[in-house]
């Protein structure tokens, strides 16, 4: 399972270019950061108000009780630590709620600037999780009707505004149903927004209501892929082989 998620992340990282300004959503998209090739620099945007994340910090043990946590907060704020130290600062988190460090080129800004970036076409790429994607490039990723109230957070803004939207998701649901469909059934996040879908089985580009398979995982047959997809597939002239982890 972990390997499936990491494989998807690694293949998406391979699509990024030097200098790209990128937002990574929560879930599989977060893992993409671990696979960005060493020879390129990518600037990571956080919807809560930064550009230029360096690392997520593995800070553990501070939540064991209220007193321990209060003590940590009150020794990791103000000028006590900074964005480079790696000790963590209580006012520096990413959208997933992890403490982070920032690169020297980083900047922080308020939510209206952050979403001007998202909505205004300033992001080269946004990578989002998905529940369903369809042949029109519609994306559903924020709500399963009748279940928990989730809220869309920044997903609608990011999906609408980024120059390129990559969806990172497992090819089928846990009970084996296709998630790539003729038409999404779940509430939409944005219409016609998806450029590329990356699953553990294949990479699909969506263009003019066509699902074009550009790469497949090793060992998968075209027949198997068609069976597991809820809409007709077109295969590119050259279908590449996806990278494993």
């Amino acid at each position: 399972m972990t390997d499936v998620r990491n494989m998807i992340a690694k293949n998406i990282a391979g699509m990024l270019h030097d200098g790209d300004f990128v937002n990574l959503g929560i879930g599989i998209p977060t893992l993409v950061a671990n696979y960005i090739p060493d020879d390129i620099d990518v600037i990571l945007h956080g919807e809560n108000g930064f550009a230029g994340q360096d690392k997520e910090l593995p800070i553990t043990g501070i939540h064991k009780d209220v007193e321990t946590y209060k003590a940590w907060l009150n020794t990791h704020g103000g000028e006590q630590t900074d964005h480079l130290s790696g000790e963590g600062h209580r006012d520096l988190i990413n959208a997933g709620g992890f403490y982070i460090t920032l690169l020297p080129i980083a900047s922080c800004f308020d939510s209206s600037v952050s979403f001007a970036i998202a909505r205004g076409g300033h992001l080269d790429v946004t990578v989002l999780g998905g529940l369903q994607v369809d042949i029109c490039g519609n994306l559903a990723n924020w709500m399963v009707p009748g279940k928990k109230i989730n809220g869309m957070g920044g997903a609608m803004d990011l999906a609408t505004g980024a120059k390129k939207v990559i969806v990172a998701m497992e090819h089928c649901t846990k009970d084996g149903k296709p998630k790539i469909l003729e038409q999404c059934e779940m509430p939409l996040t944005a219409i016609g927004c998806v450029d590329v879908v990356v699953t553990e089985l294949c990479i699909i580009e969506i263009k003019d209501r066509k699902l074009i398979v550009t790469a497949m995982a090793p060992g998968i047959t075209r027949e198997e892929l068609k069976e597991k997809t809820g809409a007709p597939l077109t295969f590119a002239e050259t279908v590449q082989t996806m990278e494993g982890v």
């Binding site: 956080g46 809560n48 108000g49 930064f50 704020g77 103000g78 964005h83 600062h89 006012d91 520096l92 988190i93 920032l102 922080c108 800004f109 308020d110 939510s111 209206s112 952050s114």
Partner: peptide, 10 residues
């Protein structure tokens, strides 16, 4: 401090 600014000035 850092991204604690978020919605505050708005």
């Amino acid at each position: 401090k850092y991204d604690s600014i978020s919605f505050n000035p708005l």
